[in-house]
Design a protein around this nucleic acid. Structure first.
Length: 659
DNA sequence: AGCAGTGATGTTTTT
DNA sequence: CATCACTGCT
């Protein structure tokens, strides 16, 4: 039995007597100051776009530390690790290195770290592997194939639909039955089969020591709920909880927060209901409004003064959000009234849009705006393909965030699968993947090996009993090779290089464009150099994958300044002097998929709002008119509904002159 | 049992 | 423009 160490912590609540290094009153406005000085008990901070939300969090971290709270006992949960790092860096600049000691990360990475420690309490081994969405779909497909029969041959949900139902019902803490009835009622005939698949899927993961993204949260909650020992240790360690971007948390995360807050309820949630853009992940934009009800006593702070944008930009964004069907009690105001009006540029074609955006970027740069103060924001990853070509022609260095990441490509997943079986030998999903790469091995023979592994008859250092006839040798060679790497004392990067050499002939055989893919592998090898353990590498790849998309990201463009192209979701919390929003066309943004449903439509509006509020000084919205759209088979020619009825004096409109 | 070739299919957003 | 499921061939 583990012994619980209780450490007494004295928090000086008598604020007036302390003399701080930082002059909080001078550095902050009144509402920020109040939030920063919030001491114990629950609090909700509603902070509009650009109102210094990060600043408030950073100052509160510093303030708590100045008051004698030990940095490790502050837990800062953010949406991305990048955000957490940035905050801690700023806090360190403000105060000192102690701020770097603050605990923090995403819900998922925090959960992973906790679960690695307490895995045995929830019947897992601590070397569990984390599987991403597509892995999860594959595993679901595996069990799905066992369930489908004559009755289920038509209109039975696909693996990706099943994964979605599974994930959303878990994230919203709703039973499968209720969730299907409410959201996928057309599948209710198949309810028994679907539920069965989900049970089998859970068994599968437990058996092979795998967790999907949802399991990380579910198992953390389970641990907090069911193990008093773990809960006490965790509560004792993390005395002050701060959660950023609360509007994008879901029910499951909310329940975790309740347990993390513990009896003391020292939790501060920060967010903006008008910026909720993650409902597809089970977030509900009303969640944040329910937050106070979960606590006996919850203070609410509102911050409304915007320091980011000019009042010209805010006039436009206020207009956009006030058109929302469900009203937000929100009007941001700004002391900066010296700006240009936002521009709307209408072009004839996508080509012309790309050309004009490129040209404007060059003009802004000539006028002294550094290129890394400029961003192009897009609704979907592929909206920038044409622009990317144009930017390359014009020699404008750029980095693209969001969209398909190179980590998600088949060849990189293959590479990672080798590492994963070394780390967790039971990982059937990865075994399956790498076995199928071998010549003469199909699903059946792979399955044979999988069963041997599952029954502990075969492992990396005991594989003599494998008998697959002619193919035995090639499989045994794979085992021998992986076992060598497992035992080897060489660096992670060296191990990855060996794997790459092993994989290279397979790659060449499998893909015509193997040279392009090999370059990705070289990038991957470079990344692997940053890690000292396979565990750390795998964890980062699963939870904080390198954000850069597949791209010809040259080393020098990374060093120097670059233009940012980003999906709006990936641009959350960031800001630039100049922001372009391209493809503001009905059918693209809002996406054609969202138009049927009022809730998804409203989310598109908030998304547009988030995009526009990223701009500090200049906002340029563009769209091409008369575009034939293959998807819907129609001609798109209407400007986005979010900008079509903007009052004339709020924007300047441009069209490209005919030559 | 494995594999290659074919035809359909569908392409938000992310941990 | 892939990937994916399916089919028929070896």
């Amino acid at each position: 039995m583990k012994k619980i160490l209780l450490k007494k912590q004295s928090i000086n609540t008598n604020l007036t007597k302390i003399s701080y290094k930082i002059n909080y009153e001078l550095d902050l406005n009144k509402s920020q100051y109040d939030a920063v000085m919030h001491n114990e008990g629950a609090a909700l901070v509603i902070a509009g776009a650009g109102t210094g939300k990060t600043r408030t969090l950073v100052y509160r971290v510093a303030r708590l530390i100045e008051d004698g709270v030990s940095p490790e006992s502050i837990l800062l949960l953010t949406f991305t690790r990048k955000a957490a790092k940035e905050m801690l860096r700023r806090a360190s600049l403000l105060l000192d290195g102690r701020c770097e000691q603050v605990s923090g990360g995403t819900f998922h990475s925090f959960a992973t770290n906790i679960l690695r420690k307490y895995a045995d309490l929830i019947n897992y081994q601590r070397t569990f592997n984390i599987i991403d969405q597509s892995d999860s779909e594959d595993a679901i497909n595996f069990v799905r194939n066992k369930i489908i029969n004559e009755k289920t041959n038509k209109r039975f949900p696909t693996k990706s639909t099943l994964q979605k139902i599974y994930s959303l019902s878990k994230n919203s803490v709703t039973s499968y039955k209720d969730y299907i009835e409410e959201n996928f009622s057309w599948f209710s005939d198949y309810y028994d089969e679907i539920e069965n698949i989900f049970y089998l899927y859970d068994d599968y993961k437990l058996k092979y020591n795998l967790m999907d993204y949802d399991d990380l949260l579910i198992n953390l909650l389970k641990l907090l709920k069911e193990s008093e020992i773990a809960r006490k240790e965790i509560n004792n360690k993390y005395q002050f909880i701060m959660v950023d971007e609360y509007q994008d948390s879901n029910r499951l995360q909310h329940e975790i927060c309740l347990y993390l807050a513990g009896e003391k309820q020292n939790i501060m949630a920060v967010g903006d209901d008008a910026q909720s853009i993650y409902s597809f992940r089970g977030a509900n934009h009303q969640n944040i409004m329910f937050f106070p009800e979960s606590f006996g006593d919850c203070k609410i702070y509102k911050i409304e003064e915007n320091y980011r944008s000019t009042s010209q930009i805010l006039d436009l964004t206020n207009f956009i959000i006030n058109e929302a069907f469900f009203k937000y009690e929100k009007k941001l105001y700004s002391p900066r009234s010296d700006g240009d009006l936002p521009k709307i540029v209408i072009t004839k074609s996508e080509r012309e849009q790309s050309l004009i955006v490129t040209q404007l970027i060059l003009e802004y740069r000539e006028n002294g705006i550094p290129i890394n103060e400029i961003a192009v924001l897009i609704r979907s990853g592929f909206h920038s393909f044409d622009l990317e070509i144009e930017l390359e022609k014009a020699n404008i260095p750029f980095v693209k965030f969001g969209g398909i990441k190179f980590i998600e490509t088949a060849h990189i997943k293959d590479m990672i699968a080798y590492l994963r079986v070394i780390y967790n030998q039971k990982d059937a999903l990865s075994w399956q993947r790498i076995l199928l790469l071998l010549e003469g091995i199909g699903p059946n023979k792979a399955n044979k090996v999988l069963n041997l592994i599952a029954n502990n008859q075969v492992s990396l250092n005991n594989y003599d009993s494998i008998d697959l006839g002619k193919q035995s040798i090639i499989v045994k060679d794979l085992f021998a090779f992986l076992n060598e790497i497992r035992k080897s004392k060489s660096s992670v990067a060296d191990k990855c290089t060996l794997i790459a050499e092993y994989y290279r002939p397979i790659l060449q055989n499998k893909y015509d464009d193997w040279q392009k893919r090999w370059r990705d592998i070289e990038t991957y090898l470079n990344i692997s150099e940053r890690y000292e353990s396979i565990e750390a590498l795998l964890q980062d790849i699963a939870l904080e994958p390198p954000v850069e998309s597949v791209s010809e990201l040259t080393p020098e463009s990374k060093e120097n300044e670059y233009l940012t192209i980003s999906t709006i979701h990936s641009a959350k919390g960031l800001e630039w002097k100049v922001v372009f929003i391209i493809w503001a066309l009905e059918g693209k943004f809002p996406s054609a998929k969202a138009t049927e449903n009022i809730d998804t439509m409203e989310e598109e509006r908030r998304l547009f709002y988030v995009a526009a509020t990223r701009a500090k000084d200049y906002l340029i919205i563009t769209y091409p008119i008369n575009i034939y759209d293959r998807e819907s088979g129609s001609v798109l020619s209407e400007p986005s509904r979010f900008i079509s009825n903007i009052p004339e004096n709020f924007v300047e409109k441009f069209v490209v002159a005919n030559e």
